[in-house]
Simulated assay, not measured.
Amino acid sequence: MLNFIKKWFGSPNSPKPPVEVQWPVKDISIGQVRKAAAAFLKEKPEGIPFSVLIKDDHEIDYTFLTPYLKAIPRQTYYMSRETYEIFEDRNFAKTIDKIQRAVDDYVDMEGKFPIQDGNPEMKICYMKLRSYLNDTPSFETYLTADENLITWRKPILQ
């Protein structure tokens, strides 16, 4: 993170870092954090990756979200590095990343998605991923139609 800030100060065209403000610590819902992350994604300066929000342990770095939240969340939230979904559980974020990498590896090797045959919900078939995952996840995941990313949210069929 320090190198990231140093780069800002190194170039006259670089964006300015967030203004140092003493934000209060408050109870902030996961929905509010998701909205703040979406606003940051929409307004972030070019050249700054969205992944700047994710610490090494998947915890969210609120440095860039506090201007949207007007506070520092009392709760700790975590973000998947692969899908950018936000969770209350670090292990859930890590597991989502493992599944997404397994799906990507499967697609690279097999040339198709590891979904259950004939499943209109695009449910991921963990049996097809057994060579790519060490453990079978305890929850179901689905392939999103628009981005080919996985999600734990069951799609609503119309």
Rank of each mutant, 00 (worst) to 15 (best):
I124G: 03
I99R: 02
F9H: 14
D108R: 10
Y77E: 04
Q100T: 00
Y132M: 09
I124R: 02
K6C: 08
P49V: 08
I86E: 08
S11A: 15
F40G: 00
R74H: 09
D108G: 10
R90W: 05
P17D: 02
D56R: 15
P24Y: 06
I115C: 07
K128C: 09
C125A: 15
L157N: 01
F87I: 06
E110F: 10
T136I: 13
L69R: 01
R153D: 10
N91W: 07
V33Q: 04
G111Q: 08
N13L: 15
E121D: 09
I72P: 02
T83W: 04
P137Y: 05
S14C: 09
Y84K: 15
L65K: 03
Y78G: 01
L53I: 03
F40D: 07
M79Y: 00
Y106R: 00
L69G: 00
F92N: 12
G111K: 08
D97A: 01
D61P: 06
P17F: 03
T83A: 00
N134Y: 14
Y68L: 02
L2E: 15
L65S: 01
I72K: 09
P137S: 08
Q116K: 14
N119W: 04
S11L: 12
I48Y: 06
Y77F: 11
E110G: 06
L2N: 14
K16A: 15
P12Y: 06
L129P: 05
A37R: 08
D89P: 11
L129E: 04
P18G: 09
W23Y: 15
T141G: 02
K16M: 12
D105T: 12
R34V: 15
R74F: 05
K55F: 08
P67N: 06
P137G: 06
K26D: 05
L69E: 00
P114Y: 07
L65D: 05
F4E: 10
N119M: 00
Q75T: 09
E121G: 03
Q75D: 10
T66N: 06
D89Y: 09
R34M: 10
L149W: 00
I115Y: 00
V19K: 15
M79S: 07
V19H: 11
L69K: 00
S29E: 01
K35F: 03
I156G: 09
I72T: 13
P114T: 07
Y132Q: 09
P18V: 11
S11M: 14
P18I: 13
D57V: 02
L143D: 05
K7V: 08
K98Y: 11
K128A: 14
F64R: 09
H58Q: 11
T151Q: 05
K128L: 15
S14I: 04
E85C: 06
I150F: 07
I156H: 13
P45Q: 03
G31K: 11
S14M: 07
S80M: 02
P120V: 07
Y77K: 03
A39P: 03
K70N: 13
D27W: 08
E82C: 12
T136K: 13
D104I: 08
A37L: 07
A93K: 01
N148M: 13
D105C: 12
G31N: 13
M122N: 15
I60Y: 07
K44R: 13
D117L: 14
T76H: 11
N134K: 15
T63P: 04
R90L: 10
L149Y: 02
Y77Q: 02
I96E: 01
I60P: 05
I54T: 09
N134A: 12
E121W: 06
S51V: 04
G118F: 02
K123N: 04
V25Y: 03
P45H: 00
